[in-house]
Amino acid sequence: MTYNSAAPLRTYWSAERPAHVEWIVVDNGSTDDSVQVAESLGARVIVAEKNLGFSAANNLGLRSAQGEYIAFVNPDARVVASDLDELASAIDELGGLVSPQLLNTDGTLQPNGRGAPLLLHKILNRASERQQDNGYRLYAADGERRNVFWLIGAVVAGSAATMRALGGWNDRFFLYYEDKDLSIRAWRAGFPVTLLGSVRWTHGWSRETTRIRLMPWVREFDSLFRFYSLYPEFLFGGRSVARRHPEASARSGRLVSGG
């Protein structure tokens, strides 16, 4: 999904891709040259007349995709084409949702796996810049496969059958919290959620709520209210989380040996 994403497309998507890989870009009414840049780089572009939001745009791409495997990838993430076969094999073996371990642009690990989305965890995460594996910010070491409660939405992959069985993304979320919701629904449906340490892709991580701009924060709080209305057990945590999410609670954060 793109929205005024011409610059990251040029930076992260200029490498050649195998001919059999279908690259679909859903553009959410960009006012820059995102559409032209994506087309020049070889994408099949679906142009939305307005900004549909992250979830609805992803679903539009999902309905159009023809492949056996689906990966939702942000415009500020770099796909390594030589890793795609390994990613597909992991999806076949593990099932469910899978993501590569993401890296920051300086090569350090990025915590794209997360623990239970308790409201307190969210507050503490925003209050601290420390990047250690602390039970909420989770990483997979090289060669490890780590079950996590949820994956950030920068890169989320799985079989087309799994994605469609889940009903795609929840378009009640315009932006933010949709990744938590998708992962929770995957666990509830019996699909594990796994961070793959043997595949590492770079993610620029351009998050608008790190800046002082009103609309991103309005959307953040709107999605926050929707999420905790759907999943009130995460407001305070405790036994209700383990009771309502037994598989995710039991397995998230546990290391699984690589194949």
Results as ranks from 00 to 15, higher is better:
P117L: 02
N134A: 07
Q110C: 10
L119I: 15
R145W: 11
F149G: 01
D171Q: 08
L124D: 12
M163I: 13
G158I: 08
V156A: 04
L182F: 05
L151E: 01
D171T: 09
A141T: 14
L120H: 13
Q132A: 11
R114E: 01
H121P: 05
N147P: 06
G113D: 01
V156H: 00
R114G: 03
D179G: 04
N147C: 12
R114K: 15
K122W: 14
Y176A: 01
G168A: 06
P111M: 09
G158A: 14
Q131K: 12
L151D: 00
A140G: 07
R137V: 10
I184V: 15
D181Y: 01
D181C: 03
D142S: 12
N125A: 15
G135P: 04
Y177M: 11
L120T: 15
R164L: 09
A161H: 14
V148A: 03
L182N: 00
K122V: 14
A140I: 07
R114L: 10
L119H: 11
V156G: 00
P111T: 10
N125P: 05
P111F: 06
R185W: 03
T162P: 02
A161E: 14
E144G: 07
S128N: 09
L120Q: 13
P111E: 04
A141L: 13
I184G: 01
P111A: 13
N170T: 08
A160Q: 10
G143Q: 10
G167E: 00
L118D: 06
F174S: 05
Y176P: 00
I152F: 07
R130L: 09
W150G: 01
R185E: 03
D171K: 09
I152C: 06
R145A: 07
Y177K: 05
A161F: 10
E178Y: 03
L175Y: 08
H121W: 13
Q131V: 12
D171L: 10
Q110R: 15
A154Q: 07
R146Y: 04
R126Q: 13
S128C: 08
E129S: 13
E178L: 06
R114H: 13
L124T: 14
I123P: 02
W169H: 04
L182H: 00
V156F: 03
I184P: 01
L119T: 12
I123D: 02
F174D: 03
R137F: 05
G158M: 07
D133E: 10
A161Y: 09
M163W: 08
A157S: 12
A141Y: 08
R145H: 10
A165T: 12
E144F: 07
R145Q: 09
F149K: 01
D179S: 09
D142E: 13
N147R: 13
N134F: 04
G115F: 01
G158D: 03
A140E: 00
E144N: 09
R130N: 11
R164P: 07
E129G: 10
D133T: 11
Q131D: 11
A165F: 07
L119E: 03
P111H: 06
L166H: 02
S128R: 13
Y176T: 02
L138G: 02
I123N: 05
P111R: 01
N170D: 11
L118H: 05
Y176I: 05
R126S: 12
G167S: 08
L175D: 06
W150A: 01
